[in-house]
Design a protein around this nucleic acid. Structure first.
Lengths: 146, 146
DNA sequence: GTATGTGCAAATGATTTGCGTGCTT
DNA sequence: AAGCACGCAAATCATTTGCACATAC
C-alpha cells in the first residue's frame, strides 16, 4: 500500500508487478506532465529492468482504468498525469516558454456541462487547453486579484 | 479568384499551383472536418495527378498561414477545417457515433479570456472539445431552447 | 500451475523528407 | 530562366504488437 495507483490496480484485480509499481510511483510523484519517454527514463532509474514497451502498455492500461489522464500539448507526444491527483483542472500553456500552468474554474465547469446539456448531451469528457502570451513580461504582479 | 483560400495564398506570395488550388477548393467546400486522407481522396477525384505528400505539404502550409485549423478529435489522425469559414466555434464529439457537432458560446469566449487574463496572459490560442453521450437516445427534441 | 505480464525487435500508421523532374512567376 | 513545387519512395517518430520467456496469484 503505497501509491493510490497501486490501490486502484489491486481493486481492479490487476497483477501488481514490479514494473507497474515503479511506473505507478513515477506517475504519482510527477508534478509535471511527463511523456512516455520521460516516464521511462525515470522508471529506468529506479529499476533498469524495464522496457519502454512496458511503459507504453502500462500507461495505456492506467489510462483505460482512468488512473491517469492523457494530454496533448501540441508537441508530438502524449503527456500524462495522475487523475484526481489534485482537483479537476485545465492547462494554460505559455507560448513563450512552453511552461504549463494549471488552473481550475468552477464557472467553466458549470458552463461546459450547460453547453453539453443544451446540445442534448451529458458531458463525458473534454479536452481544454489555453495558449497564451504573457500580458507584459513584467506586469505579472497581479495574482492577488488586483 | 475563387476560394478565399486562393486569395490568401496570392496575398502571401505563394505559388498557386493546380494542386494547391484543388486542395484549397476541397477545404473550402468541406462542411465536415476531413483528415488528410479524405482531403486527398476528394482532391484526387477532381484531379488525379496529386499525391498525398502534396496534400500533407499543402495542408501544413495552409495551417502555418492560418488558413486552416488543425483539430484532434481523439482518433489517430488530424482533422482540418478552414479558419474563419464560419464564426468562431468549438466541437462536441458524440462518443456514441463519433459525430462532430459545432457550437459557439459567447459566455465561454469571455470566460476563456478572463481566465487567461487572471493568470497574467493574453489568450493566443486554445483547444477545446467536449465529448458527450446523448442524454437519452430519444430526448433530443430540445434544440429550440426548451 | 496457469494466466498474464515483460523484453526485444519487428510492425504499424501517420506524417515528413530527399531527390530528380515539372510548372509558376 | 530560376526557383519553388510535385511525385515517388524511403525515412522518421511515436506507438503497438508477436513471440518466447518470466512472474504474480
Amino acid at each position: 500500500m503505497s501509491t493510490r495507483i497501486e490501490q486502484l490496480c489491486q481493486d481492479k484485480g490487476l497483477k501488481m508487478t514490479e514494473q507497474r509499481r515503479i511506473i505507478a510511483r513515477v506517475l504519482s510523484e510527477a508534478t509535471d506532465h511527463p511523456d512516455v519517454e520521460q516516464v521511462f527514463r525515470r522508471a529506468a532509474t529506479l529499476d533498469p529492468r524495464i522496457s519502454i514497451a512496458t511503459v507504453y502498455r502500462t500507461i495505456r492500461l492506467f489510462e483505460e482504468a482512468n488512473i491517469v489522464e492523457k494530454h496533448d500539448f501540441g508537441d508530438g507526444r502524449s503527456r500524462y498525469e495522475e487523475s484526481g491527483g489534485r482537483s479537476h483542472h485545465h492547462h494554460l500553456i505559455n507560448l513563450r516558454t512552453g511552461e504549463v500552468i494549471e488552473f481550475e474554474n468552477d464557472e467553466l465547469e458549470l458552463l461546459k456541462r450547460k453547453i453539453a446539456a443544451q446540445l442534448g448531451f451529458e458531458l463525458a469528457g473534454e479536452r481544454l487547453e489555453l495558449y497564451g502570451v504573457p500580458l507584459a513580461e513584467a506586469a505579472k504582479k497581479k495574482d492577488n486579484g488586483s
